[in-house]
Design a protein around this nucleic acid. Structure first.
Lengths: 110, 110
DNA sequence: TCGTTATTTCGAATATTCTAGAAACATGGA
DNA sequence: TCCATGTTTCTAGAATATTCGAAATAACGA
C-alpha cells in the first residue's frame, strides 16, 4: 500500500521530469498544437531546429513515459501527444485537495 | 516575441522539473491535501521522514518557482501550495490544442 | 542571558542529465 | 542492387541535481 503509493509518485515524477526540459516541453507543446494530425520526427525537427540525435533522444524519453505515442507510416514515424496522460497527472496531483484532517488523538477504549 | 515564448517555455519547464523529483512531488502532494490549512516544515518532515537539510532544500526550490508560498508564524514557517500556478501550467501546456494548421504555401501576388 | 525549538546554509561526494557529432540502421523507390 | 530519406544508436564531455551531516541562524520562553 505504501509501496504502491511510492510507485505512483515515482511514475508521476518521471512524467513531470520529462516535461521539465525546455526542448522536450517545446516538442510536447508543438505536438499538442497538432494533436489532431500528429507530426513526424522530421516535421518536428524542421520546426524546432534541434539536431536529429538530440531530438530522437528527447522523443524517446517522452515515449518511454507514455506522454507521446508513435505510429509508423512506411519510413515516416508520426508522434502524437497523449493528452489523457496529462489529465491523469493533474488529477493525481490535485484530486486529494484539502482532504487532510488534522490528526486527532483517538480516545482510548476501556 | 520568440524570446518571450522561449522565456515562457523555460519558466514552465522549471516548474515541471521541480515537480519531477519524487521527494518534492511528495511534499507538494502533501501540501495539496492540506491546502486549506497549510503545513509547517516540521509537520512535513514528520510525515515524510526526510532529513531536515534535504527537506529545506527541496521546499526552497518549490518556493523559488512559485509552486509553494510561505508564511511565518513566529518560529514556525507554514507552506501553502499555489494551486493556481498548476492550473496556469496546464493551460500553458494544453490551451493551443489542435490549433496548428498545416502550412499552405502562400500564393505569390503579381 | 541561556537554553530550546524551528529552520537554513555549507560543503562535498555521488549520480544523472544534456547535448550533439559520427556512424549505423531501416525502408522504400529507381 | 544501389541510392536517398528518415530516424536511431553510440560515445563522451560538460553541466546539474541529489543527498545529508555538521554547523549556523533566528525567534521565543524561562
Amino acid at each position: 500500500m505504501r509501496e504502491e503509493r511510492d510507485l505512483q509518485i515515482a511514475e508521476a515524477a518521471k512524467k513531470f521530469t520529462e516535461l521539465g526540459n525546455p526542448t522536450r516541453l517545446s516538442i510536447f507543446r508543438l505536438l499538442v498544437k497538432a494533436a489532431d494530425t500528429g507530426l513526424s520526427v522530421g516535421e518536428i525537427q524542421k520546426e524546432l531546429d534541434v539536431p536529429g540525435s538530440t531530438l530522437s533522444h528527447h522523443i524517446q524519453r517522452l515515449v518511454n513515459v507514455g506522454l507521446v505515442a508513435q505510429r509508423r507510416d512506411s519510413r515516416t514515424l508520426y508522434c502524437e501527444p497523449q493528452i489523457m496522460v496529462i489529465q491523469e497527472l493533474v488529477t493525481f496531483l490535485l484530486a486529494e485537495c484539502c482532504t487532510r484532517q488534522t490528526q486527532i488523538d483517538p480516545v482510548q477504549p476501556d
